[in-house]
């Protein structure tokens, strides 16, 4: 599904340049659930942003579902993001003046799907995350866990190939973290490829594979026995 070779990325900070990713080689199989770990500054978020086409690399290649992602203009990138990728952010990033249903329906709007169809699909995904009854609530009327579930529903709404989650439990307490991770496991079990960036070992152990990043290089990459969450 994902094939990355010799990826480099530097940031220009004033006169000096900060080399964040120093040659990443990395691939993800279809249906995998990968945790990307590392301390802050290890480059894990940068890697995820490049994977999500939110940022661009300096050197290296990136293939997503056998499509080369390189030198795309904004228009094409937007199109690919919409079709191939779903995002889940630490701070949810819901649009605060839209209710849960409208937030979930937004990626479908950018696919040019009709309003009726959008609402129907969005409601299906809201139901999937257990928030059908909260469809007409604004984000400010939802708890943190509920917001993240809405965000996950939104990420799924366009039926992407890969779900990218950047510290999805970073802003949640342990109980709601478990709820969210259980949801992610459930979606993964249905066949979706998911990448989770986290710095929490507990969360990482709920994935199928852990990739450790340190100072811009992968220091460890191993499959683990997944800690499956039951009875949440």
């Amino acid at each position: 599904m994902i094939e990355i070779k010799n990826l480099h990325k530097s940031y220009q900070i004033g006169a000096s340049s900060l080399h964040v990713l120093k040659g990443i080689d990395f691939s993800v199989e279809d249906g995998d659930l990968v945790a990307i770990m590392g301390s802050s500054g290890s480059g894990k978020s940068t890697l995820l942003n490049i994977l999500g086409m939110l940022d661009t690399s300096d050197v290296g290649t990136y293939d997503l579902d056998k499509i080369r992602i390189a030198d795309m203009n904004e228009k094409k990138a937007a199109n690919y993001r919409n079709k191939f990728l779903g995002f889940v952010f630490q701070s949810f990033n819901l649009i605060n003046y839209k209710n849960a249903l409208e937030n979930v329906a937004l990626p479908l709007y950018y696919q040019g799907i009709s309003r009726k169809e959008r609402q129907k699909t969005a409601l299906t995904y809201l139901d999937k995350v257990g928030l059908k009854d909260w469809a007409d609530h604004l984000p400010s009327e939802l708890s943190g866990g509920q917001k993240q579930r809405v965000a996950i529903a939104r990420a799924l709404a366009s039926n992407p190939k890969v779900l990218l989650a950047d510290e999805p439990t970073g802003a949640l307490d342990s109980t709601t973290s478990l709820e969210v991770m259980a949801l992610i496991q459930k979606i993964n079990n249905e066949g979706k490829t998911i990448l989770v960036v986290t710095h929490e070992h507990d969360i990482a152990k709920m994935c199928k594979r852990i990739v450790h990043l340190k100072d811009g290089v992968i220091v460890d990459d191993k499959k683990i026995k997944q800690n499956v969450i039951k009875n949440v």
Binding site: E74, L94, I95, Q111, S158
Partner: peptide, 10 residues
């Protein structure tokens, strides 16, 4: 930014 991440074109 959110809209762009969700696929809004410039």
């Amino acid at each position: 930014g959110i809209r762009k991440a969700l696929g809004a074109q410039p």
